[in-house]
Each structure stands twice: as C-alpha cells, then as structure tokens.
C-alpha cells in the first residue's frame, strides 16, 4: 500500500519533470560550472602565468644570444655540452642526486624501523628530535655546517686534532667538498624519508606478520616478503620525488662552496645561477636550467604513475 502510493506519486511527478528538465537543469549546470570555474580560476591563472608560461618562455630564452638580440637556435646547448665545466656539472649533479637519495632512502628506512620498534608514547619525542634537521630552514642550517667545516678552527677539525689526526680541508679540496655537500643533503633529507616510511610501516597489517611467523619466516624473510612488497609503492614515490628535489637543489652548494673549488661542486641550479644571474648571460643560464628538464620529466612521469596506481588501489 505504502509502496504503491509512493510509486504512483513518483511516476506522476516524473512526467512534468521531464518536460521542464532541459531548461532548469541546463541553467543549474551553467550556474554550477560557472561557480566551479570561478573558484578554480585563481589557481589556473597563477599556474598558467607563473609556472607554465615561464617554462615555455625559458625554451625561447635559451635560444637567444647573450645580448638577447639574435636567435641562435640550439647554439647555447651545443656550446654548453662542449664546455669542460658543464660536463663536470652534469657529472656532479648526477653523483650528488643519486648518492644522496640512496643514502637518504637507506638511513630513512633504518630509522623508520627503529622508530617502529619502540612504543608509541616515546615515538613522538624521538620523531620530533629526528625531524629537527628537516624543520630548520635549509639555508640557515647549511650556515652552521659551513662553520663546522671551517678549516682553521672549528668543531670537526678540533675533534680530529684531539684524536691525533691532521686537519682536513673539508671544503677546499674537490672530492672532500663533494662529500661534504652530499653529507649535508643526507642530513637534511633523511627525516622526510623516515616519516614517509614510518607511516607506510604502520599501515602494513599486523596479521601479515603473524601469518608469516606461523609459516616460519625469519626477520629477514618478513622484511623481504612482507614489508618491502607492501611498501613498494611508497618507497618508489618517495625516492622519485626526492630525486627531483635533490637534483634541483640549490641552497646547500650555493652557501657551502658556491660551486668551488674549481667548479667541482657546481650543480645545475647553482651553475645556472652563476651564469645567468651573476655573469648576466640570461639565455645561457636558462639553457643550463633546461638540461634538468628531461630527467625531471622522466621522474615526474613515474611519480604520477605511482600516485595514480596508489589511488586506484585505495579506491578498490
């Protein structure tokens, strides 16, 4: 009875609705989508004018001569590739990014496991302490590293002398400076890996470990057959993301060595700054920056794929 009456009422109102629907629905849609576009407009304007436009403009810029009066095509790129300094920059950027990311990922993984072992209450304090390197603005903490690396009288060399070793010119010799720059980056970036991995570790269901124990799996087997497969996606997203950020790093090298000694620590970003802003060759600087683009694009593609896949997994 009740069902029948609602059904009748529904079918009654259905007929007039179909007739009025086009106009009102269209109007509704129009209003709704107008509001939607208006709300998203500031974002599109900002990204369009200050991210996408400069990116395209830098392509054009990189094809001009130094005075920006003539079009030279790919001349700047060819010029750079032939230059010894720039070949060093490519090598150093890859060395810096790959070594730092591997070390950060390893240390972050170890720290996340250690953190996961201790009870939740004290985790908060330990996590807070370990996050400090990541919280202090990088430019400021790099200054304190610089002071620690000071050749004459400073923390590290004083300790070395105390234990009977000779002072090390940390920033004065090429490979020392490279290692120093990587150290600072690892110090700064490890906490980020730690919190990402810790969150991923917490999301692995405890039953999987119990099931693995019952099947007789040892600690290493649990790590390789339960933990790592469950965290695979987060690990790859974090590593690729960090690869992009590390590759494009500027602050550490700029403050610590400014590219020296003998250009042996320059990265793409710092070299672009030295060429484009300091020496005033804007097109050449733009060309230097653009060399980062292919590597970043590949990494970005895989990050996006990982994130989409993860979202699909989460939705499923």
């Amino acid at each position: 009875m009740a069902d029948g009456s609602t059904f009748v009422a529904g079918s009654n109102s259905f007929a007039p609705l179909t007739r009025t629907r086009p106009g009102s629905v269209q109007r509704f849609l129009r209003r709704r989508s107008t509001t939607a576009v208006l709300l998203a407009m500031p974002l599109m304007l900002l990204i369009g004018t200050l991210v996408i436009y400069p990116a395209i403009y830098s392509l054009y810029l990189a094809m001009l001569n130094k005075r920006m009066t003539a079009f030279v095509g790919l001349g700047n790129f060819a010029f750079l590739l032939k230059r010894n300094t720039f070949q060093l920059v490519i090598f150093q950027s890859c060395l810096f990014a790959v070594t730092s990311v591997i070390l950060k990922a390893l240390l972050g993984f170890i720290l996340a496991h250690l953190m996961h072992n201790i009870p939740g209450k004290s985790q908060r304090i330990w996590r807070g302490l370990l996050l400090i390197p990541w919280v202090i603005p990088l430019a400021l903490s790099t200054l304190s590293w610089w002071w620690l690396f000071d050749p004459a009288y400073s923390g590290f060399n004083w300790l070395l002398n105390k234990f009977g070793f000779a002072s090390i010119p940390f920033l004065g010799v090429g490979w020392n400076a490279r290692i120093a720059v990587i150290t600072v980056n690892v110090w700064f970036g490890t906490p980020f890996f730690m919190i990402m991995y810790l969150a991923a570790l917490k999301s692995v269901p405890e039953q999987l470990y119990e099931a693995a124990s019952i099947d007789g799996a040892g600690a290493w087997q649990k790590l390789f057959f339960v933990t790592l497969p469950m965290m695979r996606n987060i690990i790859s997203i974090t590593v690729l993301f960090s690869l992009i950020v590390t590759f494009a790093d500027f602050d550490i090298v700029r403050i610590l060595t400014a590219g020296g000694p003998q250009d042996m620590t320059h990265l793409f970003a710092t070299y672009a700054f030295a060429v484009g802003i300091q020496s005033g060759d804007v097109p050449l600087g733009a060309a230097v920056s653009l060399f980062m683009f292919p590597i970043l694009a590949v990494a970005a593609y895989f990050v996006l794929r990982g994130v989409t896949r993860r979202n699909q997994e989460m939705a499923a």
Binding site: V51, P54, Y57, S58, I244, A248, F250, S289, L296, A300
Partner: peptide, 13 residues
Amino acid sequence: LIPASLLFIPLFQ
C-alpha cells in the same frame, strides 16, 4: 614537481 631552480631565470625576466 617543477622545481624553483628550473624557473628562476625566465622568472627573472
């Protein structure tokens, strides 16, 4: 994912 160090030169202009 586009870092500041890729854009700072065109943005300078």
